[in-house]
Simulated assay, not measured.
Amino acid sequence: MNNHPIVMTIPAIADNLSIIRSVLYALAVKAGFSYEEIEDMKVAVTEACSNVIQHAYGDQEGFIRISFQWKDVDLYITIKDDGAGVREEGESTIRQGLHAIPLVEASIGGLGIYMMHALMDKVEVKRLNGTEVVLIKRLGRIEEIV
């Protein structure tokens, strides 16, 4: 796979989630990810994009910028918004993936981040002029796909 990113800017509305999942599916199949890995990525990406749709812009219109980029055998999926978002009281715990506390003690709003951590190999959340979520999935088998 080449390392040139594929970048989309799309209105932050629920109707566009299927477009994002379709692009992810096409790229992941071509790269050689298994069906289970692709489904995991689709759930994680849908959750990250749903967070943008629900929380980033309030009642205003906004956009999701999503990029797919290869770095060695890792697929980096970056979901970015420019919205104000919502700041949770336990935000630092949520960003760590809730690994330090039992799941039953997690706040409802933090479960999406927990799922992303469970389904992806690595998750990074950055908050500066909006929110950026980077989801990283390592390709399990390395074969040349024709």
Rank of each mutant, 00 (worst) to 15 (best):
R65D: 06
V43F: 06
A48P: 00
G58L: 04
A56H: 04
V45A: 00
D81P: 02
D72N: 05
D59L: 13
S34W: 04
G83Q: 07
I66Y: 01
S92T: 09
G58K: 14
Y35P: 07
E61L: 15
I66G: 02
G90N: 13
V86T: 12
V29M: 14
Y35L: 08
L98W: 05
Q60K: 13
G32P: 00
I66D: 00
P102F: 04
C49T: 02
V29D: 02
V104W: 14
G62S: 03
K71L: 13
G58R: 07
T93C: 10
Y35Q: 13
G83C: 00
F63A: 11
E91S: 11
L103G: 11
D40N: 12
Q96H: 12
K42Y: 03
E88G: 03
R65F: 07
V86C: 12
G90Y: 15
S34A: 08
F68C: 02
A44G: 08
I53S: 00
I101H: 14
G58Q: 10
L27N: 11
V86D: 06
W70I: 08
G97W: 02
R87M: 09
Y57E: 06
Q60W: 08
M41C: 02
Q54N: 15
L27K: 11
V86L: 14
D82W: 04
K30D: 12
G97K: 06
F68I: 06
A31I: 08
A48V: 06
V104K: 15
E91K: 12
T46P: 03
E39C: 11
Y76T: 03
F63G: 00
A100S: 15
E47K: 00
S67L: 07
Q54M: 09
H55A: 12
K42G: 06
S50F: 07
I101E: 14
G90A: 09
A100T: 14
F63P: 06
